[in-house]
């Protein structure tokens, strides 16, 4: 396991619901303005309780970069593939826009991009990561909800958070083994 295994650890308790990450992602990745065109999002979780005893959480999310990615399995042309670092990517040139991956994704993380003429989604900003920079959403976040790092490197912030804090993944019942970890 010499390769890095990238993951994002999220401490949603710090999320201000400020949407900085969603806008940063759009510019970084040429995602056009539009209701359906977004790679990441910040969900306002249901308000709990009755006035004046209220509680609310905010949940930023994106493509989960599943180890067992349903989208990869159903892609007829191998346009969707996993890199050695465990990042699920789309080779836009190979996409025939059958949209099977969109139907297969339990996280609704994919959409049709007019710009790429292919299905696109979060790439963990691999173009930045390969330059030694953090993904745009990670970098821009005021409170640093997201921590990006290598799970194989025990010294990385991400790995330390995972080993020291309780965490969960989204839709574990789908057996997708996401690379997005939410701190409890």
């Amino acid at each position: 396991m010499a390769d890095k295994q990238y993951a994002i650890v999220l401490d949603t308790k710090k999320c201000l619901n400020c949407k900085a990450c969603t806008v940063a992602c759009k510019f970084e990745n040429f995602v056009p303005v539009g209701d359906d065109t977004y790679r990441i999002w910040v969900t306002e979780m249901p308000l709990q309780g009755k006035f004046p005893r209220l509680h609310q959480e905010y949940q930023p999310s994106q493509c989960q970069h599943c180890e067992n990615a349903p989208c990869e399995k159903v892609c007829p042309t191998k346009a969707t593939f996993r890199t050695r670092e465990g990042v699920v990517l789309v080779d836009y040139k190979k996409c025939i826009l059958c949209k099977a991956c969109m139907a297969a994704c339990p996280y609704d993380a994919r959409f049709v991009s007019d710009l790429h003429e292919a299905v696109e989604k979060c790439t963990f900003c691999m173009h930045r990561v390969s330059e030694g920079r953090e993904p745009a959403c990670v970098e821009t976040c005021p409170t640093k909800v997201r921590v990006f790092g290598d799970m194989n490197d025990p010294a990385s912030d991400a790995a330390r958070l995972l080993s020291s804090r309780q965490h969960y993944q989204l839709k574990p019942e789908k057996n997708t083994r996401p690379r997005l970890f939410y701190l409890a």
């Binding site: 619901n17 999002w41 910040v42 969900t43 306002e44 249901p46 994704c105 339990p106 996280y107 609704d108």
Partner: peptide, 8 residues
């Protein structure tokens, strides 16, 4: 696949 909550 995701609930139609605000911001989602």
């Amino acid at each position: 696949m995701r609930a139609g909550l605000e911001g989602a």
